[in-house]
């Protein structure tokens, strides 16, 4: 076998493995979708029917007529937007400080920032709950978005890494002209950092939209529920397996926004994440 043939063989093998992997990855989704269109009793059919005989949209419409899902989606969306605005504002300010300002303890503080990235959420979560309970925020949506206005270590890190790729000459020149730092940040640095901003929007949206633990702990009123929590309540209102089609319909509904936002922001992801140290 000559080299060319060998290479072709290898490529074919790669292709097959990728295909099998993709098939296994997408299978659960297809099953979820197919189940979401079924009548409750049809889920017990063996062998599995992949394409339901009748496409039954009742499961989807019932989510809105019987279960208030439009309100839950609005709640989730509201919290997501507040988080994104808060994070972009606070993280860009902090990242600017770490990228372009000087301070005696800057490096030590940066190490501290990286360390908090590794800090397990479980450890801070319970004490935070006690704090929010103490200041009377339990049962409100405030604990779910106010902390975003103080930034998040990972996003600060991403932005700082991206800021460092911006030529310093540009910033120095603006400083010579007497432009204030805030103007430099919002008129020069941020517009050049679009990929990193998009990455933060995608990651933050998914993190908040998908969050289960936070809303589970802090929300007590039914009309404040987010979709993720509402989905779990939906499951527990029924016992047994009769709930499966409507739960699968709600699950499908829950993942659509994440999939869409990833699909449209995808091309930015590889551009916005700068891992390597930057030559200075």
């Amino acid at each position: 076998m000559d080299i060319l043939q060998k290479r072709k063989c290898l490529k074919f093998f790669t292709y097959i493995v990728i295909l099998i992997g993709a098939f296994l990855m997408i299978m659960p989704f297809i099953w979820m979708l197919s189940t979401s269109f079924k009548e409750p009793l049809k889920v017990y059919e063996v062998p599995i029917k992949w394409i339901p005989e009748v496409f039954n949209f009742k499961n989807y419409t019932r989510l809105f007529t019987d279960y208030n899902f439009s309100l839950y989606m609005k709640n989730s969306l509201k919290i997501c937007l507040l988080n994104i605005v808060g994070n972009i504002l606070s993280c860009s300010l902090t990242a600017y400080a770490f990228a372009f300002c000087k301070h005696k303890y800057k490096n030590r503080l940066f190490l501290l920032l990286l360390a908090t990235m590794m800090l397990p959420g479980v450890v801070t979560f319970f004490p935070q709950f006690i704090l929010f309970n103490y200041i009377g925020w339990y049962g409100t949506l405030l604990p779910l978005w106010v902390p975003a206005f103080t930034g998040s270590a990972f996003y600060i890190f991403l932005l700082r890494q991206f800021f460092l790729t911006i030529p310093t000459e540009l910033i120095d020149a603006a400083k010579m002209d007497g432009t204030s730092d805030l103007k430099i940040l919002f008129q020069i640095v941020l517009p050049m950092s679009k990929p990193a901003i998009v990455v933060i929007i995608i990651y933050n949206f998914m993190a908040v939209w998908n969050d289960f633990f936070g809303p589970l702990i802090y929300i007590i009123r039914e009309d404040q529920r987010t979709v993720a929590v509402a989905l779990n309540y939906l499951k527990s209102t029924y016992e047994g397996t009769s709930s499966i089609p409507i739960v699968m319909a709600a699950s499908t509904l829950l993942i659509i926004p994440s999939v869409l936002i990833y699909f449209f922001g995808q091309s930015y992801v590889s551009k916005g994440i700068v891992f390597k140290g930057v030559d200075k």
């Binding site: 606070s90 300002c101 301070h103 930034g151």
Partner: peptide, 14 residues
Amino acid sequence: HKFLLFASPWIIGF
């Protein structure tokens, strides 16, 4: 104190 001012959101949050 520019650094501290700009980094204040994170420092306060921390």
